[in-house]
Design a protein around this nucleic acid. Sequence first.
RNA 1: GCCGGAGUGGAGAAACGGCAGACUCGAUGGAUUCAAAAUCCAUUGCCUUCACGGGCGUGUGGGUUCGAAUCCCACCUCCGGCACCA
Length: 808
Amino acid sequence: MKYEIQATEAKWQDRWEAERVFNVTEDPTRPKFYNVQMYPYPSGALHMGHLRNYSYVDLLTRYKRMRGFNVLSPMGWDSFGLPAENAAIQTGIHPREFTETQIVRMKAQLRRLGAVYDWDRELASHSPEYYRWDQWLFLELYDRGLAYKRNAPVNWCPTDQTVLANEQVVDGRCERCDSVVVKRDLDQWFFKITDYAQRLLDDLDQLDRWPDRVRTMQRNWIGRSEGCTFSMEVAETDLSFDVYTTRPDTVFGMTFAVLAPEHPLVDALIAGTDHESEARAYIAAAGALSEIDRQAEGDKTGVFTGRSAINPVNGRPVPIWIAEYVLMGYGTGAIMAVPGEDQRDWDFATKYGLEIIRTVQPPADFTGEAYIGQGSAINSEFLNGMEMAEAKATIIAWFEERGLGKGTVNFRIRDWLISRQRYWGCPIPMITCPTDGLVPVPRADLPVIHPDVDDYAPGGRSPLAAVESFVNVECPSCGGPATRETDTMDTFVDSSWYFLRYCDASNSEAIFDPAKANYWMPVDQYVGGVEHAVLHLLYARFITKVLADMGMVEVQEPFNALFTQGMLVKDGAKMSKSKGNVVSPEEYYARYGADAIRLFELFIGPPTDDAVWSDNGVEGTARFLDRVWRMATGQVGEIQDRAPNDADREVLADAHRMVQKVTEDIDRFSFNTAVAHLMTFANTLQRALRSGIARETHAESLRLMLLLLSPMSPHLSHELWELLGYGSMLATEAWPGWDAQLVARDVVTMVVQVNGKVRDRIEVDAGIDAETAEATAVASERIREWIDGKEIRTVIARPPSIVNIVVG
RNA sequence: GCCGGAGUGGAGAAACGGCAGACUCGAUGGAUUCAAAAUCCAUUGCCUUCACGGGCGUGUGGGUUCGAAUCCCACCUCCGGCACCA
């Protein structure tokens, strides 16, 4: 009997769906398992790289189900965004039509893989039923002062014609299109994620089932530093400015001060000095540079202002410079320069002939320039002799006593810029009234639906701004003429709460029912790419904390365990459409079926590592599955109607060993070795069949194999399960346990080493004691050859596995 | 520069501090076949030996240990993140 791949796979896909096997509701009597994959952008065609992730998630859904969990595995679509809009610009097809076509295609592809979800909870961020709650969330943040509009220098991508969040700028370039990002001053909406910086940092400690790498990346991104802010007066004026430093202990070593070129005080500072025209030229030149050039580490440039500032600790005047190595966006945009203990200040001082005073004693053998290590304070009056920590505390207290400054904490993270000047996103629900200023759209008027437009092309402002019927509205407050906000939201807003919406996806009265969210949350296993380490994963944590503060959900952290899968690599590059190296599954479905593809995706290597695609790997797993089919249907060897003998009992023991290993390997996410153990047992079973196996042993072996194989290659497993009469729906069976007595071995191979080198292997009783093990080892013929005539210094016995004889 | 992670056969990879290379691909030889496909068997880290066996071997150099791919130190290479953040 031949295995009919296409018909069988279709049959089981139909049955899982028709019998609603994976549709779930809250059930307090069972432990829940909330299994989520980062919802995909509906790009249309899935390639082998994508299928790797779907195979992992589907394995977990099926496995946890069999382990007795109430498993929720939903699916949805991150369906706002640039690709659909760019396609619309090119083809004229409405982004909605384009997107919905792609969603239909992708659903069909997931179904073809045999991936199962609770489709009742399907959501798409472009649907008004979904983005209505984006808008609601925005208004809640606005009411809490967590959403605000401000004019600020922002990152502008000249190609995509929109602003970007800091997190979307990579090495000065747009993460999407790689264009060099420029700064523009624009009125933009921000979410105040900086209010949550400390909590986002602190709670990383409890995420012990996240990869360290991701936690470290978030820590770096949040970038907490402790230091001191104090004020400096400008000599011969009544001006003053604040500086921030993490090294207040070195304040006596300040030999100059530096302002960022954009510092608001600069203009007043240089006005009327001899250096005014030179300084203005410098500022203009700095302003014209791109961010990349600005941030390029190289020769530091700067210009003297002609003014001096007074060092508050000793009244000493120091020259004030303007230099672009000081950034307006961090701290106060002004620094005290201590060249003795800061390499950047050292470089600058050396270049411009400024004084250098060491205030920390370097070790005698120190040969570098600025010294940033530990040491005693010198040249620092009352701080002299103190170590760094003590000196810091002392000087901060000194500042605070006199009201001149205070200990402060700074974060590198900036507020989240969420405005986008693009069409295919969620409209921001705000109205600007000449009388009342910014007025929120009343919640009863949500959703603000974005109208169809003729021209999607970005032109520096949102395409929505061209639609007068959309823009012009009555002010909800005074009824007078007013205008709508025409920017749309960053799509990362959509994705920062979708996992909560899955819990109650069809609720038309609220964003979700807290009771339902509290049943399912937190997500027990979150699966996705590491590229979102500081984007989506940080935003989602932030929004969850906001919703927790609102009392909507109890958890402070949305994702209990995070799994970041490796990429699939082909021809030395990540498999992706843009690289042109994708392998489509269609041909493989036709030849080998979904089960073989899934099994290969699991087997290809450790899930967290990148894996290299190989064309004939699927052939290997297909061969394995075919062998399982033939062994199950009596096409291999001989199944004998007799009582099990010793050989059969050993086969059964191996089957139980397989159950143990596969279970343990799945639990530690070692899917590649789990598959390997199934293959090993298949080899064992095949040998047994060839020499004749008892029917009972054969049946039990197959039963266990099919249970273990079913989360990996579900179609063939289900078909055989039904065919062999074990039941009608394998997916709802319980995961097998193993018999510890059967797994344990009576006789084991003991290795005997002489001086650490293996010299013999002896079959011994598994319960052998150390004394007997040693005696057995020494008595061995082969061992005698190595130890005779030599002095036995010591013998290490670790029965029953090893004995090491050390001879001199 | 700073912070992570990783270097094991021809390839993907295994290996609680205890037999390095499980499992799969590939390759070679063989069985079956009129022939092929499919299937099955055997071999497959390097050197040496007719053979039994022996020697070497997990990026490099040290160290700890009876024993190290695994732990420690230094270095090299690759990958990822951050980077003029005061």
